[in-house]
Design a protein around this nucleic acid. Structure first.
Lengths: 194, 194, 194, 194
DNA sequence: TTGTAACCGAGACGGTACGTCTCGTCTTTCA
DNA sequence: TGAAAGACGAGACGTACCGTCTCGGTTACAA
């Protein structure tokens, strides 16, 4: 029963979604997350403010959709290399790649800051943005457990947070990426399998 | 020769610094970081806007001073427990405590977001806010190396980032602190000494 | 074709014009022209600053509207007394009355000062404020010409400027109205008919 | 007894007067009267604000001094041409010349506007700026009386105000000088002698 | 056919805050 | 005491967005 209340009135023009998201991406590229205003998005998209607010009532929701394209971020599983060490190499390399996309760092921290004042938003952000990353990471450790590399009582979730969180902090907080970091992180976590 | 050019003109009223910082702290407590406006600080402190901007031209600078009190954060060394495992327990417990101060999480992410748009500010923030934490963490690993618990070529700095960064991400990004996390982190890093 | 471009968007609330003008008049009475700020008008009228600036982007424009009520100043013709001398008596007496309204002198010179820095404003001010007065005066001399009291080549416009200008200067510049002045002006100009 | 109280304390540096007046003239030329601030004058002259305020506590006083050089405006008598008509030609031509100096119009109305809010200032302005002009004009009519061109009971002062005031209004208020005006004014006033 | 309901672009609305400017006074040090 | 420098409280300036609302007009489905 996905559509219990049949749509009344004029249906939304689907094309406008794309116009708005395109405008959002353009402005994001030009002015960054904090320099992006709903006002400007509406104007750029040639759309009334109401139309914009009706579809994305908050900036982070709009930006998330524009940047990550909704379903695009559903934890696309990484290939199984056969060992924890190999999986960690792959995963950290992937994360590195994501954070090095220009604007990503500012976007993420801007969204976090925006969302923190509204618990509902923060929950949504975690659900949509952080959880997929964590799940990708969790899969790696779950595999290691099933392989017997790690003990059965390993806190899978905590390990995932350590990996994803350390990567996040490294790129967002501490800036200037040193090449050794990714390696050190992968090695440290692989040590658990010894 | 710290003061080569003698001060000209009317000197600043030192007391106003305190009045302003007090006002900042009060408003921070009431409205959080993002709800804090320079306008309101000036009014609350009973101070002209110019006076405020003259001393702290940017919000993050003001808030940093108000919240961390400048020199207060110069990496107060943690006691040496004699083992890496012990030190890690202490350090993670301390970090946990810091992040659980109400408002800390929002404040940190707000400041990070604010600072990211201005590279100078971000540099200052790293220098003042992140570096002390990292140094505390680095000391722990340096001790472990000198004890012989860790090999001599250990990337001290990376290890510090992993520890501090994972703690940060855990509290700021992933919310809802689970008691097991701190333990898992400490254990994981202690495993390096095996 | 008075309304070629149909109004788009939400129409302005006509009532606000009156609220704003009322507030302007009140503040004008309390603080005079130079003591009147756009800020205060907006606050007094209970109106956003944007709303005020949208309608009257400059102080003199607002004050002119508030004080003279726009169309109110379209050269209300003076009655024909039958002689130039009589008309001049009437006209100068009327001008005297106008300038003796409290605040008028300060208002006029304030507006002139404000407008002089922006040629467009000055043009508007002349069009709206000075021209009607000059036209009233010009009518008097035009009548005298048609009566045959003055020669056909009389510079009507110049005479009007002499009359209105002398009255203006007398009240605004030279202050302390001496009763004889008005009479002397009327007599002098009437002499032309001899 | 010109100097009963001997000067105490450090004597003023006479040269600063000139520095300040020079700065005033420069800023006047660049930004006009209304664009001139005491703040900017002090900075430009390289002088403390107190020093400036001590010597000229109000803007119009400063500007008057800077522009007219104090004693420069003591009604330098115009030559006697032998007839009222001739004197009027000379006088109006002179006035025309004065008003056509660039910036004069804005300066005069700005100063008037500034002074009108403070009766003391207005009195000073009249005494220093308007009276000399009026006296020059009055002399013309006084001569005409003594020649017998005008009756003995002529209101000399009123006639002076008409002449000077009409010229003022013509240039300041009504803008765009038409060449015929000066002539019309002179002719009209000369008509009194018929 | 005629409601009726939600859509649309545009933009007005009351607000808040921004960062800059000027005001006229006050307070320091140096001469 | 004068002078230079500049801090001080106050508050206006004009701009930018916020999120809501209101207009006239446009689709769609339902009666």
């Amino acid at each position: 029963m996905p559509n219990d209340t049949p749509p009344r009135g004029r249906p939304r023009i689907a094309e406008l979604d794309e116009r708005i998201l395109d405008a959002t991406r353009a402005l994001l590229a030009e002015h960054g997350y904090l320099g992006l205003s709903m006002e400007a998005v509406a104007k750029r998209a040639g759309v009334g403010k109401q139309t914009l607010y009706r579809r994305w009532p908050r900036r982070p929701l709009l930006v998330y959709q524009a940047y990550f394209g909704g379903a695009a971020r559903t934890g696309a599983e990484l290939p199984d290399t056969g060992t924890l060490a190999g999986d960690l190499q792959l995963a950290t390399a992937y994360q590195d790649h994501v954070f090095k996309q220009p604007g990503t760092v500012e976007l993420i921290s801007g969204m976090v800051a925006d969302c923190l004042v509204e618990p509902d938003l923060m929950a949504a952000l975690r659900e949509n943005m952080m959880r997929p990353d964590l799940e990708v990471a969790a899969v790696i450790f779950a595999r290691a457990v099933s392989r017997g590399e790690l003990p059965g009582d390993t806190d899978i979730h905590a390990m995932a947070e350590i990996m994803a969180g350390a990567m996040f902090a490294h790129h967002v907080l501490y800036g200037e990426d040193r090449p050794g970091f990714r390696q050190a992180l992968a090695t440290t976590l692989a040590k658990l399998a010894d």
